[in-house]
């Protein structure tokens, strides 16, 4: 057999080998391209707290003060809309927090999930500013006896303006020094929410 003939056979073999290869390639390409019509489904973030409201009811009765923070575009560019409130001086309030995800329809109450995982979460309240006289104490606790903070009581002192910072931490060290007294300094963990409400005590 002449060498040329062998080469020819080789080339034929090439073609034979290539045909299924090209075919497979085209098939795969076509198959993959035909996916085009399947539009991806929308994902509404499950874990976003869009809305945090703090309801403060005076112990002696009267109109409740509601502080709100709403950020309906989640991680979008719009900053949250925060509405603060005016409190009466030297008054005790019963506070309750509600966290919502309003990206879901109907809105999902995330407070319940925080309550379920109470050993991994804690709210903190910081009165910020030289003139703001506010103190808070926790009214709800996890199984270890550490505070959670969905329910709390707030006491105002003399008149003054400032900011109430409400923080929700996740996977924090609830046993660290000062944390059970509401001091965030040693808490660590991940911040789920951090809102600065303007407060005027009159």
């Amino acid at each position: 057999m002449k060498k040329e003939a062998i080469i020819l056979t080789q080339n034929l073999k090439t073609m034979k080998f290539l045909k299924p290869l090209i075919f497979t390639f085209l098939l795969v390409t076509v198959a993959a391209c035909s996916d085009d019509d399947d539009l991806p489904g929308i994902i509404n973030e499950e874990e976003v707290i869009t809305t945090l409201s703090v309801t403060l009811t005076p112990d002696g009765g009267g109109t409740a003060i509601v502080l709100t923070s709403t950020d309906l575009d989640g991680d979008g560019p719009n900053p949250p809309t925060i509405v603060g409130g005016t409190l009466a001086a030297n008054t005790n309030y019963t506070g309750v927090i509600q966290a919502l995800n309003e990206l879901e329809n109907p809105a999902e109450d995330i407070t319940e999930e925080v309550a379920e995982e109470d050993d991994e979460h804690q709210f903190f309240f910081q009165a910020v500013g030289p003139n703001l006289n506010i103190s808070t104490t926790y009214s709800d606790f996890d199984d270890d006896g550490n505070p959670l903070g969905i329910n709390f009581s707030l006491t105002t002192g003399d008149a003054g303006d400032g900011t109430l910072r409400v923080t929700l931490r996740h996977l924090l060290d609830k046993f660290a020094a000062g944390v059970s007294d509401g001091d965030i300094t040693n808490a660590g963990g991940d911040t789920d929410i951090e809102v600065d409400y303007s407060i005027s005590v009159q």
């Binding site: 390639f25 993959a32 391209c33 996916d35 991806p40 994902i43 973030e45 874990e47 991680d75």
Partner: peptide
Amino acid sequence: SILFQDNFADPVTEVRR
């Protein structure tokens, strides 16, 4: 050289892609 590529972001994450 010919390339075909498909990226699929699985919605199972429940996090926006």
